[in-house]
Structure formats: C-alpha cells, structure tokens
Design a protein around this nucleic acid. Structure first.
Lengths: 186, 186
DNA sequence: GTCTATACACCGATAGAC
DNA sequence: GTCTATCGGTGTATAGAC
C-alpha cells in the first residue's frame, strides 16, 4: 500500500473522531495495517499522521474548491463553480470539516498555524473574485469571511439537526449573497 | 464545595479540550478535587460529568440568551437583547460553543439528542419572534436557522483566525439581517 | 513492509482510611 | 466528603522476527 493510499484511509477517522478520539487502534483498523506498519510510514506517530491528513485534505480542497476561483470566466460563474465543488467536498453537508475539528485541544496547539493559513488562503481567493466583481477591498474581504462563516456554521447545523437542507440552502444562495449590491447586504 | 460549583469549574475543561481530551486528571485539577471526590458527585464518571456540564450550560443559555426573546417589547429590541447576551455568553467570540464541541465522536453518540433539542429550542424561539414581526412561518424558520448558522460559523472563524472581529460583526448585523424585508434577503 | 509481542504511561474507575 | 493508593484496561510507541 502506498503512503498516499494510507493517508486517504486515515482521513475519515480523524474527521469523525477528532484528534484525541482517533486512536492508533482505530487508525490501524481503518487502514488495514498493523500498528507497527503505521509507524513505518509515520515514524513520529499519531501527530505525523494527523499532519499528513491535514496536508492531504488541504491539497484536495485547494485543487477542487479554490482552483475554480482562479479560473477564467466571470465572477458569478466562478463562485457557482466553487459552491458546486464545496457541496461535493462535504457530501452535501453530511461530512464535517477537518479544519474545524482539529482546532480544539492538543490538535489546536499542534496545527493552529497550518489551519489558520489554509482558511485564510480560501478567504483570500474569494475576496479576490469579489474585488474583480467591483466590490471594494474591505467589503470583499468581509463577504469572503461571511462565506466561510456560513459554510462552517451550516456544517454544524446539518450535523446536529441530522438534515442536509441547511447546508444545501446556504450553498444555493451563496453566490447571490456574495454578489448582491452593497446597499442590500445589511 | 457544592455540586453546582464543581460543575461550573468543569465547564471550561470540556469546552477547551472536548470530551475525549477532558481527562479525569484534568477535571480533577480544574476543580481542585481529587478523582475519588469527583466520583462522589458523579458516580457514573466522566459521562455524567459531561451530561451535568451540558445541562448547566443549556440552562444558562436559556436564562440569558433565549429568555429575552420571550420578554415583552418589540421584536427588534428583543433580538438586539439576545445579541447582547450572546456576545457576553461567548465572551465576544473568544470561547467555543460547548454544543458544537460535544457533537463529535463518542460524545455525539451520548448527547446527540440533547444537543439537537437545545439547538432546536433556540431556533424555534427566534423563529417565533420573526413571525411576530410579520415573517411568514417558513421564512421565519429559515432565518432563525441562518442566525444559528452565522453564530456557529463566526465562533469557528474567530477561533481559527485569532480575531474577535468576525464574531462581533456578525452579532452587530444580525438583528437587521433577520428583520430585513424578504425581497432583499437573498 | 508487515507482522506478533510487548514496554510503559496514562486512562477511567474503585477501595478503604479518615 | 476528601483523600491516598491502586486496579484493570487501553493509550502510544517499539523491538525484533519474517
């Protein structure tokens, strides 16, 4: 088994159980590898596994969700493309955000900087698109933050309420909200 | 020490470390009680401590955040009052939401129903106020869910970005957004 | 590379003195 | 009620055969 394949199988364990809940036993079971084999791929142990998982997910997020924002085409289309990818990335709201899960407890002390950078990169890409759509710099940044806020909040609501509708509704309205004229945004 | 005092001291440990990260040793340290003393107050152990903490926090939330929604006065004033209390409750966005933290891993299987009920109660109270402000039933419910979404998302952003501004901005605009005429809400 | 077996610390939980 | 001491189990991590 390649290391990348192993990482892919580790992802859902960290996403579901969080850092402390993702025990090496569970990680071993999920990959089908013995504990010692896991330590062959990740000599520094669980923290290295989590770091690899985080990097893997961030890469995938950049390639599928952020990339469309940098593509050619008009801003509205790019934002819609991002939303489509977001919906797939989070399985219509059924799956939690790894970043938000790893922002607690010990994991937070380990990965705070990486998580902050990843989130900022996303927000910045959205803000860039909004500026191209004639938002002034400050408003664009605020609305980009709002986008991240609504996605994160919708994921929580969807999980707690056992309904994907809140997430899907947020996704559906997001491009319109972001591009609305300034006067109607309050 | 009274049981209630003990519970109050347990709260920040669960909120900061999550369920698995809140070890009995840490809980013991935080309260100043020995492990065995904790088990005197909570015979079923950690799960009972978490349940007590959850109930305590929900009670406080109901008394400070939800209560203003049921008070007399016009809807706008009631929503502003809720926002003021929300800001204090989460210390301007510096403190995480216990409900969202306990909605992962083993804690989620233990407390999912309680968490869902608590969140629904809050959303319902907001929706009720919006209906009194002449929102139709469905729109009121959607906007109430949006309020919860934005608060939860803002708490995540504030924590990850180490800035309280996103939370404070969401709080500041929330009453206006909720009461905006339907046509400008998309 | 993958395994079985194991080391050692810490987990949640309990016994029993005071 | 609170403590010290300790239990059995599981946690992370390693050793060493294959």
């Amino acid at each position: 088994m390649s290391k990348t394949e192993a990482i892919a199988k580790l992802v859902p364990v960290f996403r579901h159980y969080g850092y402390e809940g993702a025990t090496v036993s569970r990680l071993s079971q999920a990959t089908g590898l013995g504990k010692a084999s896991l330590y062959h791929y990740f000599p520094k142990g669980k923290s290295e596994m989590a770091a690899a998982v985080l990097e893997y997910v961030e890469r995938r997020f950049a390639q599928t969700v952020i990339a469309p924002l940098h593509s050619p085409g008009d801003p509205q289309h790019r934002l819609q493309s991002m939303c489509q990818s977001l919906s797939e990335f989070y399985n219509s709201g059924r799956e939690a955000c790894l970043l938000s899960i790893l922002s607690h407890g010990e994991a937070n002390t380990l990965f705070h900087q990486a998580i902050q950078t990843a989130l900022t990169t996303w927000i910045e890409a959205i803000a860039q698109v909004l500026q191209e759509a004639n938002c002034d710099r400050e408003l664009a940044w605020e609305r980009a933050e709002d986008a991240a806020i609504q996605i994160q909040g919708a994921l929580i609501l969807a999980r707690v309420l056992d309904r994907t509708e809140p997430f899907q509704r947020i996704i559906a309205y997001l491009p319109r909200k972001l591009l609305a004229s300034a006067s109607s945004s309050v």
